[in-house]
């Protein structure tokens, strides 16, 4: 019998700890498939964040480093500057990347570090139990915005892809989701392009995933997927964000 679908070699054969309906698992698989297709597992070093994906190193078959909260791009910089021929990717959530690690991601991007960042934006702090994130939508209820995010006092959500796309060191940025087979296919293309951008030495690359958190959103997995399509992607439009042209 012909095998048409299997576990990518870059993934370990263990069940993940992710909640039902969360798309971390799909995102892990897409990264692993791209690593396999590019044949770079032996020279890939991943960096896991503080957050739900802190244990990502248990799920990938490549070398891995666990960074402190928000500092993955700085750690990745140290690794890539030591091993310029390696493939280095950061896996970061919204609290990690857009709140506590805002400085590190901006500067890694503007330096044009030849790394790839997989940014998982689920508009909430998942691991700590559903607090407000820098990407929580206006009016969205969380355990620290129980009446809904009031932008007058809590400020506005950060659009990371748009923000970083203004920096000259950025070579590729795309925002994707995994809410349908078609979106998963598009997302994989983006992940592959991001890794290729790094391997070709073009500069900094990032793929922002709009991801689900059914548990902390208080939704079923299907409702959560629909909420991304109906709500999140209005504030965070999907698509490529090409960088501004060089000036001068």
């Amino acid at each position: 019998m012909k095998k048409v679908f299997g576990r990518p070699e870059a993934l370990t054969d263990v069940p993940t700890h992710y909640c039902p309906g969360c798309t971390h698992g799909i995102i892990h698989r897409l990264i692993a498939e791209v690593i396999d297709e590019l044949g770079v597992c032996e020279k890939t070093i991943g960096i896991s964040p503080v957050g739900c994906a802190v244990l990502a190193y248990d799920y990938f078959n490549c070398d891995f480093v666990e960074a402190s909260h928000g500092r993955a791009p700085a750690v990745a910089t140290g690794i890539k500057r030591t091993l310029p021929d390696s493939v280095v990717f950061c896996y970061q959530g919204d609290g990690d990347l857009a709140s506590i690690g805002a400085a590190e991601i901006v500067h890694a991007a503007t330096r044009g570090e030849k790394i790839t960042v997989i940014f998982v934006n689920n508009a909430i702090y998942g691991m700590t139990g559903g607090q407000m994130a820098p990407t929580t939508l206006p009016g969205q209820r969380t355990t620290t915005s129980p009446r809904g995010r009031d932008v007058e006092s809590a400020g506005h959500p950060i659009r990371v892809a748009e923000l970083l796309s203004s920096l000259s060191g950025v070579a590729y940025i795309s925002r994707v989701s995994a809410t349908s087979p078609a979106n998963v296919t598009k997302a994989k293309r983006a992940v592959r392009k991001a890794f290729e951008t790094q391997i070709e030495g073009k500069g900094f690359s990032l793929v922002e995933f709009l991801s689900t958190c059914p548990i902390n959103w208080g939704m079923s997995p299907l409702e959560a997927m629909k909420w991304i399509d109906d709500k999140m992607s209005l504030y965070y439009p999907l698509g490529d964000y090409t960088r501004v042209p060089e000036v001068g």
Partner: peptide
């Protein structure tokens, strides 16, 4: 490399040390 802060610089050290 001139880091953006001591926080980042010391984490770059962490990364480079990881890479040997």
């Amino acid at each position: 490399l001139q880091a953006e802060s001591e926080v980042a610089g010391s984490n770059m050290v962490y990364g480079a040390a990881c890479a040997g």
